[in-house]
Design a protein around this nucleic acid. Structure first.
Length: 583
RNA sequence: CGGGACGUAGCUCAGCCCGGUAGAGCACUUGGUUUGGGACCAAGACGUCGCAGGUUCGAAUCCUGUCGUCCCGACCA
């Protein structure tokens, strides 16, 4: 391919609406252009890199026993009604109506479609297990699309769904996908690692997310340097707060004392009250699936909403409004407590940290007053004790006992053991060997293909631009001719190299533009081709061309050795990326 | 959906406070000189100042509404 005949609109300046480096480089390197918020056109270089990632995914999915299919993006809304997600996923569903006013859904994911297929087609244990996958555009009505391809309204996803006859079988399918994902990301040159993940409203019992460490990620990952534990913060647990909870009772009954104007933990911790945060009980009021509930945490802890939803089995949870709180408890936020004036119908969820807490201070449910000498278990009617707190840096790892760390990361993949939720609702059953009819046991496995592309850029960039891993580069080699006169030695040599390298299976882009060398060098580094070959008169008088790896030093090789050297370089880097995949 | 910022040439931005003929750099076109790290000179083309309404003799500038974009938060099967 020739640069002049492709379309690679590079930008010298950073577009003002791109905040993070990978988004800026997507635009500057001419990989994509924005149509509208969260909607992007892929230009040739972006599309080629995307296709490379797709190809790696297909190879590894096929190798792991995946069966490629292609499902409709436009789906009848009634299967969404059947699964129950017409309501629970309503926020992200794009809905459209046809001429007869019938409603359709633009698929944000395909559990409903594939399970409908399985219900019709998989009827015997002899047909199981099966693992169907596709690479397809998904649509999600994101509240806030951002960071280019990272969170878009329309994006490319590889989704796979396994159907097994037993739980053990499902576990084996899950394991195969887990291993395949490890290989896929390694082959893409990405440093991705699996972490335990929250299972959300699907419930289920086993889930890992594949995370790429990046400051610009939208997830917090709790991990132990021993390598024995890593989890999304929504799911993470520890051996508890590093600060002990008071556990000695004063023996006295709760006592009300005036605290005019005190509405925060910090204010009560300050003079003249001097009640340390860990001696306080924080009372939060939430509306969980339309029911008002109280949530109790130690004063210095933060609620983990994902845990709240997981432990209560809730579909929706939100903080109550001030009006709802006053109507039920008679006091305003800042003076709330669960000791008295809590209607019997209101559930009280307390963090386990408080189970043995004694001598605590909490709100009196009366503006301007708090209670002291509160022994949580003695004085509060707790409906359910649960782990509801968010893990903090430095708490001890449940596995190794070492201090935990937290870092930001980008989620590029998710493997999920679904169980029988969808198979039961959508009727995917089979006849077992003993003649009984049973629901298939499912798993689902997603990779954000477009997000993976951007994650590679987020991880592989420097001040000059992108440096693609050889496996996902739009072209493996940029052949930079420094003088494009058609009859001149540089162009003649370059044409010959282009033909021979292409014949040898190397992906070459010949930069035949009528531009000064500096422009071509800068552009090739910005777009990020892993190897540049400079062909100029200066080298040719010595019978040489220059090999300049994007992240290495320049090397001079004889023209007659160039093809062999270039092939060896490209294949060497590919082999190194593929070697990592063995795990 | 709450909070904030911003919409002026293809891109980056100035002008707006303090109303009075639309600006710069880059990119683009033509000619010339250059030619191993984002060249130089000259000439040229490119704008309903996001849109609508209002105030005013006069609005890019002030006011109101609206649409869009970005950031923070909320949300994220």
């Amino acid at each position: 391919m020739r640069w002049s005949q492709s379309f690679i609109p590079t930008l010298k300046e950073t577009p003002s609406d791109a905040e993070i480096i990978s988004h800026q480089l997507l635009l500057r390197a001419g990989l994509v252009r924005k149509l509208s918020g969260g909607l992007y056109t892929f230009l040739p270089m972006g599309l080629r890199a995307l296709r490379k990632i797709e190809r790696i995914i297909r190879e590894e999915m096929d190798r792991a026993g995946g069966i490629e299919v292609h499902m409709p993006a436009l789906q009848p809304s009634d299967i969404w009604q059947q699964s129950g997600r017409y309501e629970t996923a309503a926020d992200v569903l794009y809905k459209v109506r046809d001429r007869s006013r019938k409603e359709w859904v633009l698929g944000p994911t395909h559990e409903e479609v594939i399970t409908t297929l399985a219900a019709n087609e998989l009827n015997s244990y002899r047909q199981l297990p099966k693992n169907f996958y596709q690479i397809q555009t998904k649509f999600r009505d994101e509240v806030r699309p951002r960071f280019g391809l990272m969170r878009a309204k329309e994006f490319l996803m590889k989704d796979a769904y396994s159907f097994d006859a037993s739980d053990d079988g499902a576990m084996a399918s899950y394991r195969r996908m887990y291993d395949a994902y490890t290989r896929i990301f390694a082959r893409c040159g990405l440093k991705a690692f699996p972490v335990e993940a929250d299972t959300g409203v699907i419930g289920g019992n086993y889930s890992h997310e594949f995370m790429v460490p990046a400051e610009t990620g939208e997830n917090d990952v709790v991990y132990c340097e021993s390598g024995q534990y890593a989890a999304n913060i929504e799911k993470a647990v520890s051996r508890g707060s590093a600060v002990p909870t008071p556990s000695v009772s004063s023996g006295e009954a709760p006592e009300k004392f005036p605290t005019p104007g005190v509405v925060t933990i910090d204010a009560l911790a300050a003079a003249p009250y001097l009640v340390p945060a860990q001696h306080q009980i924080k009372t939060l009021v939430y509306v969980v699936d339309s029911q008002l509930v109280l949530i109790l945490l130690r004063g210095d802890d933060q609620l983990n909403e994902a845990k709240l939803m997981a432990r209560t089995g809730a579909v929706h949870a939100r903080p109550a409004t001030a009006d709802e709180i006053v109507a039920t408890l008679g006091a305003r936020p800042g003076s709330l407590g669960a000791v008295q004036q809590v209607p019997a119908t209101v559930k009280v969820y307390a963090d386990v940290t408080l189970r043995d807490a004694r001598g605590m201070t909490t709100g009196a449910n009366e503006d301007g007053f708090h209670l002291r000498h509160v022994d949580a278990a003695r004085d509060i009617r707790v409906t359910q004790w649960e782990d509801l707190r968010t893990v903090k840096v430095g708490e001890l790892c449940v596995a190794s006992g070492q201090p935990l760390k937290i870092r930001r990361a980008i989620e590029v993949g998710h493997v999920f053991k679904l169980g029988t939720k969808y198979s039961v609702k959508l009727g995917s059953t089979f006849l077992a060997e003993d003649g009984s009819r049973q629901p298939t046991v499912m798993g689902c496995y997603g990779i954000g293909v477009t997000r993976t592309l951007q994650a590679v850029i987020e991880q592989c960039n420097d001040k000059d631009g992108i440096y693609w891993p050889m496996s996902v580069a739009p072209y493996q080699v940029c052949l930079t001719v420094l003088d494009i006169a058609p009859a001149g030695r540089p162009m003649q040599t370059a044409e010959k190299l282009l033909a021979e390298l292409t014949a040898a299976g190397i992906e070459v882009l010949l930069d035949d533009r009528d531009d000064r060398p500096g422009v071509k060098f800068k552009d090739s580094e910005l777009v990020g081709f892993p190897l540049r070959v400079n062909v100029g008169e200066k080298g040719l008088v010595k019978g040489e061309v220059e090999l300049k790896p994007r992240k290495g030093v320049v090397r001079f090789v004889k023209v007659e050795d160039a093809v062999r050297e270039i092939v060896a370089h490209v294949q060497g880097e590919l082999a190194a990326l593929n070697a990592d995949k063995a795990s």
